[in-house]
Design a protein around this nucleic acid. Structure first.
Lengths: 120, 120
DNA sequence: CGGTATCCACACAGATACTG
DNA sequence: CAGTATCTGTGTGGATACCG
């Protein structure tokens, strides 16, 4: 999946390469207009497909399904299908997904600093 | 600039709204294939335009100029123009840009966890 | 050296209709 | 309810030529 943003012919030193690679992976995993918000909402409580469409006004069902699928494929969320009628599906974070919450938190912290800096 | 990913007609409670807004701002500011890497490289030392094209093999001059301009407009980096021949320009982080380094750091931490989880 | 300007290609998001 | 399929439009990145 990932584009690693460096050329295999001109590799930087290995410890630099690891930083580049780690950073780019996280960037790629979070790439998608709604993904950080999806992770954050799901961290608050297990969420259903329909509830997410209400929480994220403007998102279309197609793109919601696609981004949820990508998050699932990347191992950040898991879905539980309840065998009821009408159908019920719940999305929750995996352990790996939970470990991403510090990233979300510092992003929120910085966003507040950004807002403050623009209000001066 | 920012798309805030919520509908003004169906506003969530204010403290939730602030978290959404802060997160989305940071996401938007970092949106761009090379931006996190640019910030990280510039944090290591002041960088020149030509040096960045070497550090990021595959980037085109057009897109490098564009993403640097966006980072500058968002107040994350500043450029110093040295009045020499041949021309010399150096990009450095602003205070606001420095404050973004924790975000980069936790992204790198998580990227390493992701790699570990996939190697099992 | 450090950019702009222009054009092109594709990925991604959105709308809509349909389905198990 | 929770999706899938298809089509469409736009945003983003990339290549190239040119410029101060």
């Amino acid at each position: 999946m990932a584009k690693f943003n460096f050329n295999l012919d001109t590799l930087p030193p290995s410890e630099i390469r690891e930083e580049i690679c780690s950073l780019t992976i996280t960037q790629n995993v979070l790439q998608g207009r709604w993904k950080p918000l999806l992770i954050w909402y799901i961290s608050l409580q297990p969420q259903r497909f329909g509830e997410l469409t209400r929480l994220l006004p403007g998102i279309s069902k197609g793109i919601l399904a696609k981004q949820l699928k990508e998050l699932e494929d990347d191992g950040l969320i898991q879905k539980e299908i309840f065998d009821e009628l009408p159908f019920k599906v719940e999305y929750t974070l995996t352990d790996l997904g939970e470990q991403l919450l510090p990233v979300i938190a510092v992003m929120q912290d910085w966003g507040k600093k950004y807002i403050d800096s623009r209000q001066k």
